[in-house]
C-alpha cells in the first residue's frame, strides 16, 4: 500500500507507487528547506504575521530553520544530535542513574538484613 498527501482534502490517502514518490514527511534528510506540508501554503507560521510590525526587529529570533538543518543531518542519534551539551547531559544522567540504582540496591539490601539491637 502506498500513500500520498492530497492538497485538496488536506488528508493522506491511498495512492499508486509513482504518486507516493513524495508522501508527507519523507523529504530527504539533506534538504534544508522546511517541509512544505507543514510550513507551506496555506499554513502560516505563527511568527510571521505579527512578529515585527512596522519593521521593528523581533526581540526573539526564529531559530527553527537552523535547528531543522542541524536535526535533519544524518549522523548522531537524536539524543546527542547537538554534540557537546547533549553528550555532557546524557553522560551525566547515565552516571547519576548508575549511582542511584546501585545506592538503591545497597539500601534495600541493608534494609533486608536488620541488625539485632544491643539490649
Amino acid at each position: 500500500m502506498f500513500y500520498k498527501f492530497s492538497q485538496m482534502t488536506g488528508r493522506i490517502g491511498a495512492a499508486s507507487q509513482q504518486a507516493a514518490f513524495r508522501p508527507e514527511g519523507v523529504l530527504p534528510l539533506t534538504q534544508t528547506e522546511a517541509p512544505p506540508l507543514i510550513f507551506g501554503s496555506p499554513v502560516k507560521p505563527a511568527g510571521e504575521v505579527a512578529a515585527a510590525p512596522q519593521g521593528k526587529p523581533a526581540i526573539v529570533r526564529n531559530k527553527v530553520p537552523e535547528m531543522q538543518q542541524i536535526m535533519q543531518k544524518p549522523g548522531n542519534l537524536l539524543f546527542v544530535k547537538r554534540g557537546g551539551l547533549d553528550t555532557v547531559l546524557y553522560r551525566g544522567t547515565m552516571g547519576l542513574v548508575v549511582v542511584g540504582v546501585v545506592y538503591a540496591c545497597f539500601g534495600l539490601f541493608q534494609a533486608m538484613m536488620p541488625k539485632k539491637s544491643e539490649d
Partner: peptide, 16 residues
Amino acid sequence: DVIREATFQGCHTSYV
C-alpha cells in the same frame, strides 16, 4: 527529544 522529532525533523505527520 520529542520536540526535536516534531518541530525539527517533521516526523509528526497527520497519521502520527
